[in-house]
Design a protein around this nucleic acid. Structure first.
Lengths: 354, 354
DNA sequence: GTGAAAGCGCTAACAC
DNA sequence: GTGTTAGCGCTTTCAC
């Protein structure tokens, strides 16, 4: 018993393939009710399932959306993937997933593969937006960038600057004046925007005194190292990561540093590293050190203490992206979504429960 | 400029479609080197990319593997997905991902969709193994179950019992005698195996006195609730989840309970909830309460204190699964992989660093 | 070594 | 309302 095809159904129903197609697809031609029933019965009886591959070949659409992220094991992207898959499924689409591993050339290879698979559209957190955009345009494949994106392409981003400002201000409102920052890698678009937001907020209170920031990867170890650089009374060992200068001038010799009262961490993962470093240094969060972070991934809620964070609207991003990809006539999209402050324990606000 | 097809290339190279196919696929017939070069040039010049859909229609294979998990946002499954995608990519396959949301009927729908897409094989963490197996067998689609699986199907599991024994023994070795357990939901295959392991280990030391366990979902809140039930001196509010009896007889009235010195948590997520509950109750981990957990997902390393855990060999599972799916002649597979104890801080062992 | 042609399973004109 | 038929882009037999 090989694959059941439309021809088999047609035979069983005593009709033609075309009619079978019409009832399966509800068109484009009408079918008499009686015939319809016979076909339905035949489908039932034969166990026929339309072949998506053949369908895609003739019809044009594969009903498949691609998703490329740097690392699906990262909770932020995992949550994004879950949201995209859900939105796609709700729209009857299936999603092809791949990790670029943060590597531009891997990403381009992946794109090639997806294009050969004739995906209908792509959601991408890109390492090489310009190149990706070019490739996708040439293939006439719809796509939306999340985060970094070329000017002319559809994209969805969040207000990184505004979020960082809000986070830092919240710390300011707690009465802290020495608020340091753990920034993302230099040159990263998102990292720079968040750093700028922090800068903007602390600059508003010149009494803030010596304010410092360090630039580290968006990882747990990145946050750990950053925290050590920020919190350690002694200077870093040679070869350690570079510290940023105070915005009020170069900070004094390490021995003279005043410990920050609070830290704005640019990502949840970094904040997790910071928490560990604080624990290692015997510092209590939020009593000795207040912390606000950015992302709002589930990890921030699980941490002890729970992290006050700037929440990204992941579900909204996913829905918007999917909608854009399947919209019959899509408008140019260049969304910047609002982020919200989620107050939990790490900033020093009163405890709330799970 | 529409899609570039093989015919275009053939025309440009002054040859036939068949020859183009031969050079693209390196067979099945030989091609003269000179012709080959002309074809290659034509491909380059036209920007031809083979169409995967058409290829799949005739060839049979879509070079696509499916992955169905309950929830990709769960770090354990996210890590699994990353590993599966990586293994698949290394083998030239692409992965179609979907979330069953822990729901059997959603899972079956998903299966249907994947089958229509003609996936070559499927890796599944199933909610309805028997039904899924039947469907997949009927469609002659290869598949491997992770975790719960029908007897006759290919499956990969881990030694849940042995892992739980090792975890509990480690706690015993720390000198604790009152070791409670947070089990997964009753009826869950994996949960039962881990619970049995804990039982086995504590039974070996009858001096353990009153040992208790509670059954809760494999979630952070499940762990939180479980911890409250285990650690609170006062009885639970009415309507709270049921507590298991002591294996040495029903435990006494709540007021008379002795607080456990240690807890074996059946999953990392539950342990995270436990950590939070302990903090809320003013209990220090590991000083007041030692903890060992199960899974070894990244979250366990990030927690403060870092969690001592039973690590599942995720990469190995993924590689084994993918290999099984693409193996030209697959042997029946019924693997039970070993798990390892990863010692960190939560059990009371001396601190180690990030 | 190369090419013509027969499908893979389906949809959608286009006739009837 | 229903059936015939021409492809969709590709692989692969089979002749030359």
């Amino acid at each position: 018993m090989a694959r059941v095809t439309q021809a088999d159904v047609a035979r069983a129903a005593g009709t033609s393939m075309a009619v079978v197609s019409y009832v399966v697809n509800g068109g484009p031609r009408p079918v008499a009710e009686a015939t319809r029933q016979r076909v339905l019965a035949a489908i039932e009886q034969t166990g026929y399932r339309p072949d998506g591959v053949a369908r895609a070949l003739v019809g044009g659409s594969t009903m498949t959306l691609g998703l490329i992220v740097p690392d699906i094991a990262n909770e932020f992207f995992a949550e994004l993937a879950a949201a995209v898959e859900q939105a796609a499924r709700a729209a009857g689409r299936t999603v092809l997933l791949a990790n670029s591993e943060g590597d531009a050339s891997t990403e381009l290879d992946l794109l090639d593969t997806f294009l050969q698979r004739r995906i209908d559209g792509l959601v991408i957190v890109s390492q090489a937006p310009a190149a990706a955009d070019r490739l996708l345009n040439r293939a006439k494949t719809r796509h939306v960038f999340l985060g970094a994106a070329p000017e002319s392409a559809a994209s969805i981003g969040v207000d990184n600057f505004g979020g960082a400002v809000a986070a830092t201000r919240h710390l300011l409102e707690h009465g802290h004046s020495r608020i340091a920052a753990i920034a993302g890698p230099a040159g990263d678009h998102v990292a720079e925007a968040r750093l700028a937001g922090w800068r903007h907020a602390v600059a508003a209170r010149p009494t803030a005194g010596r304010v410092r920031f360090v630039q580290h990867p968006f990882t747990v170890t990145g946050g750990y190292d950053a925290a050590l650089a920020l919190l350690n009374p002694s200077p870093l060992a040679p070869g350690g990561p570079a510290s940023g200068a105070s915005i009020f001038g170069r900070s004094g010799p390490a021995g003279a540093r005043v410990r920050p009262q609070a830290v704005f961490a640019s990502s949840d993962r970094q904040a997790i590293g910071l928490l560990r470093a604080a624990a290692d240094l015997g510092l209590s969060v939020p009593d000795d050190l207040a912390v606000v972070t950015f992302d709002g991934s589930s990890i921030s809620a699980y941490a002890v203490p729970a992290l006050t964070t700037i929440q990204q609207p992941i579900a909204e991003m996913a829905e918007l992206a999917v909608r854009q990809l399947i919209d019959p006539d899509p408008q140019p999209l260049r969304a910047v979504l609002e982020v919200g402050l989620v107050v939990r324990r790490s900033c020093g606000c009163p405890p709330a429960h799970l």
